[in-house]
């Protein structure tokens, strides 16, 4: 699938924003402290920028409001509705902190649960597609939720939370290390599913219905040039690029944050705080790579009409 930058930015940024909002909504951070107020603003800005970025790939963004109508059947519509609805408790909580130095735990729980539901809806847009077997698994929403939680947690304590060197900072670091391990373990399960998924039960033989005659291969495309379908659905990256990018994603998103966080516990607080900020930026950069690969490596059933594996894999 074509990795559209607007959709990658949307899923990564809004995911981190909802993760950060969840941490705040669960009552972490003194509402009267300035860093907590900044954290609320950051969470709302990340969510808003993510959502606005998602409208950039629309053909007619001025009609985007219509997307709130079909929540009965469409995960995209559900995601839109939930995103807007979640703004209500989050904006109230942010205003309570910024203007009144107060917090309400009940409203926080409601807002926190809504954050998670919204991220789940985002993931289900992709996980619900039978045409992309790589995405069509329960592991997809699990990965989206865990990456949102982990990036939100790191954003919170590295930028707005506990001063490095304090006891509470240590607890947050240990918590994040656990989150990192769990998140990448689940991501590994997703990768195991993805690498075996291929075209699922479909093949060029089932796509053409000609399998009973023999082995099917594409002789001629409908047109010599690319079209919307090949650009959007038959996107392919060379294996060597995929492998290199997977490595970069795992380094930036898993290894580097983990190592930096461990080191941050052992060095002077000032340096530790700096390392925690670097670790967070590294995680977010790794997430962009991970999300790019999520799209770029996914195979869509339409590829079978354009030659499947044989024709679509570019020369290396």
């Amino acid at each position: 699938m074509h990795p559209a930058l607007s959709v990658i930015a949307f899923t990564v940024l809004s995911g981190a924003g909802y993760g950060l909002a969840l941490v705040l909504a669960l009552g972490h951070g003194n509402p009267a402290h300035l860093p907590t107020k900044f954290a609320w603003v950051t969470a709302l800005v990340l969510i808003a920028v993510g959502l606005m970025s998602s409208t950039l790939h629309l053909g007619n963004p001025q009609r985007a409001w219509r997307a709130f109508s079909q929540w009965k059947t469409s995960w995209l519509s559900r995601e839109g509705c939930m995103a807007v609805a979640t703004f209500v408790p989050l904006t109230i909580l942010a205003a309570m902190s910024i203007l009144g130095d107060t917090f309400n735990l009940l409203l926080g729980y409601i807002g926190g649960i809504m954050c998670m539901i919204t991220v789940y809806c985002t993931a289900m847009i992709y996980a619900s597609l039978r045409t992309v077997p790589q995405w069509h698994t329960r592991w997809t929403p699990a990965v989206y939720l865990l990456f949102a939680l982990t990036s939100g947690t790191m954003l919170y304590f590295a930028f707005f939370g506990r001063e490095a060197g304090s006891d509470s900072n240590r607890i947050w670091v240990w918590l994040t290390l656990v989150f990192l391990v769990v998140t990448w373990a689940v991501k590994f399960m997703w990768l195991r599913h993805a690498s075996a998924a291929g075209y699922g039960a479909s093949s060029m033989e089932s796509a053409t219905g000609l399998g009973n005659l023999g082995r099917v291969r594409l002789l001629e495309r409908p047109h010599a040039m690319e079209n919307y379908l090949t650009r959007e659905m038959a996107f392919r990256i060379a294996r060597k690029h995929r492998e290199r990018l997977s490595l970069i994603g795992a380094m930036l998103g898993a290894v580097l944050p983990f190592v930096l966080l461990v080191i941050s516990l052992m060095v002077a607080p000032a340096l530790g705080g700096f390392l925690q900020v670097v670790a967070t930026i590294s995680l977010l950069a790794g997430l962009f790579v991970e999300r790019w690969l999520f799209f770029a490596t996914a195979k869509h059933a339409v590829g079978l009409y354009y030659g499947g594996e044989e024709k679509l894999v570019p020369a290396e």
Binding site: M204, R215, V216, L218, E220, P222, N227, Y305, Y306
Partner: peptide, 8 residues
């Protein structure tokens, strides 16, 4: 669109 396939 018309695709053309070869079946062996």
């Amino acid at each position: 669109r018309i695709h053309t396939f070869e079946i062996v």
